[in-house]
Simulated assay, not measured.
Amino acid sequence: MNTRQSERYSRHILLKELGMDGQEKILAAHALVIGAGGLGSPACYYLASAGIGKITLVDDDTVDLSNLQRQILHTTDRIGQPKAVSGKTTLSKINPDIDIIALNERPDEFRLHELAESASVVLDCTDNFASRHIINRVCVASRRPLVSGAALQFDGQVSVYDMRANDAPCYSCLFSADQPFEDRKAAQFGVFAPVVGIIGTIQAAEALKLVAGIGKSLAGSLLILDGLTMSWTRIQLDRNPDCPVCGKHQARAINHEAP
């Protein structure tokens, strides 16, 4: 860490739980962030400002005027631009010393596995169950810690699924891929702007704790926010031995051969 970095991250270094060693781990880490919208925006802001060494930002959508109420990575003059590219522009201005890879694509499962292999932590900032289940399967197979968030209307939820622990639950233990779930989008039901900010910021905090090796993560717990009353509920999560993704008899391996 050079003198300029020591000054930039001095308030982190002052934290006895983090210190110089923890900040060095953050600088050496690589976050794979899938989704550059309402959740990915605040998550990336804090990952970049905290000095995480590399961010790979993946999103195949473009910036729309209706996004700007909550997706703070983007600006009015970038309407029509790919969100990943717009996000890189913003993050490069926040911290020009980190490496930001913008991928304007919707990766399939094989491609996500390739991307996760080089990541220290994966942040799921998507808005649909199909993507969440694909990302979960990839993280289970690659044993990468997954920080998953969701928000709609005034409600939000966030958890960590860390398969490096043998008894840890995965996303599918809670929301089984075998059960039908209806995707409810912000475009249909609305979303209170600060709620995505709160959940995305927690995702960044959990990711930074994981890569720095400090504190206790949300693994094994689901944190639920009611934004109208600003109340929190914590639910304990247990691993499902019959989970079709991580269960010991039904673990699903990803085909590593390109399709």
Rank of each mutant, 00 (worst) to 15 (best):
L223T: 10
S231Y: 07
G80L: 04
N95W: 02
P241N: 08
E17D: 13
L68A: 04
T201V: 10
L115S: 06
S86D: 13
I98A: 02
W232F: 14
I98R: 02
L208E: 09
E105C: 02
T201F: 13
R78M: 12
P180K: 00
Q188P: 00
R239D: 04
L68D: 05
I52D: 06
K54E: 06
N255V: 07
S172F: 00
A168Y: 04
S148T: 11
K185T: 15
G87R: 00
M163I: 02
S148A: 15
N240Q: 05
I214Y: 06
V158W: 03
T75A: 11
V245E: 15
V58M: 06
L91V: 08
Q71Y: 13
K185F: 14
H249Q: 10
L115Q: 10
A253Q: 14
Q250I: 01
A102T: 13
L222Q: 09
Q153V: 10
G156H: 01
A102G: 14
I94V: 15
R184F: 06
V85Y: 01
T62G: 00
E109S: 11
I94S: 08
L146H: 08
D60V: 02
P194A: 03
T233H: 07
I101A: 01
R137E: 02
R252I: 13
R184H: 13
S66F: 08
L228E: 13
H113K: 13
E114T: 05
V85R: 00
A251H: 15
K93G: 13
I94H: 09
P244N: 04
H30C: 03
K93M: 09
D59P: 07
V196T: 14
A186P: 04
A50P: 05
E109L: 15
I198M: 12
R234C: 12
S231W: 06
Y161V: 05
